[in-house]
């Protein structure tokens, strides 16, 4: 027993040390950011929450956040609208295409955002000249509408594909898709109703996680939007950091908290509401 105790002590100590180090690595920068945003530790200045209270009224905040949330909603809809039917179809009707779909979906992982936006910029520059006077010209103009730049939705959809594919593929693997679909069909459910009332409810966790990751990606994406000249939330945060550094950090902290809360909500909602097993 004595020997066992001596073995346990360093193990417990080591575990606590690792936890402490990891916690410090994560929390110290966050604490410093919060301290900076409220002016703590700055000589000659008192602690103030002005950076937080002033965010709502800050110039450009509402517009950039609204634009980002609209872009996020459209991206989530497009990602799910493309991937769910495609993955269900591949699993049910064309399992041989699974590898191809996986490669296509994971391809954006190896394409840096800068390379992606360089390609998009080239097309947007070349397109209008080439297609002037044709309907495609109007499409290209509409894609770049500053009020709602669809081009960003397309870029974000591409960027979200790898994560979304992994999430949805794992979700589909966790259910007996073929049997559920056939059972629904035998119960007189048409294809759309089968998808809507049987497949999607059983993919709730995967759908929510995909939506969350896509939202997080759109909230934090800077490169593509900045290079294409749009001003969603991430670009706005960097833009105000020069003139209002404290507010810029305050917004980032709030964004982080918002993401945590959202993650918590999704985790709770994704958990199936079932009573404990009784048999």
């Amino acid at each position: 027993m004595a020997r066992l105790s001596t073995f346990r002590f360093p193990f417990r100590f080591g575990r606590a040390a690792v936890l402490l180090l990891a916690g410090a690595y994560f929390l110290v920068p966050l604490a410093c950011a919060v301290a900076f945003s409220i002016g703590a530790g700055v000589p000659g200045r008192s602690v103030s929450f002005d950076a937080y209270t002033g965010v709502i009224g800050a110039d450009g905040f509402t517009d950039s956040l609204t634009l980002t949330l609209k872009l996020a909603a459209a991206t989530i809809a497009l990602v799910l609208g493309l991937l769910v039917p495609a993955l269900v179809t591949v699993r049910l009707a064309a399992p041989g295409l699974r590898t191809l779909v996986e490669i296509v979906c994971l391809l954006p992982l190896v394409v840096p955002a800068v390379a992606l936006v360089a390609g998009i910029s080239a097309v947007l520059r070349w397109g209008p000249d080439h297609f002037a006077g044709t309907p495609i010209f109007h499409v290209l103009v509409a894609l770049q509408d500053p009020n709602f730049p669809v081009v960003l939705v397309l870029a974000y959809t591409l960027m979200a594909l790898p994560l979304a594919y992994r999430m949805l593929d794992t979700g589909l693997a966790a259910i007996d898709l073929r049997v559920l679909v056939e059972a629904a069909r035998a119960c007189r459910a048409s294809w759309p109703r089968t998808l809507w009332q049987v497949v999607l409810p059983n993919l709730r966790g995967a759908l929510l996680n995909t939506a969350f990751l896509t939202l997080a990606l759109v909230l934090g994406e800077y490169t593509v939007a900045a290079i294409l000249g749009y001003r969603p939330f991430a670009v706005w945060i960097l833009a105000i950091s020069g003139s209002q550094a404290q507010m810029s950090v305050a917004v980032s902290v709030m964004g982080l908290l918002f993401t945590w809360v959202l993650l918590l909500v999704i985790a709770t909602a994704g958990r199936t509401r079932r009573p404990k097993e009784t048999s």
Binding site: I175, L180, P201
Partner: peptide, 8 residues
């Protein structure tokens, strides 16, 4: 053959 009830 496999349990095909809708889990939700």
């Amino acid at each position: 053959q496999s349990y095909s009830l809708f889990p939700h």
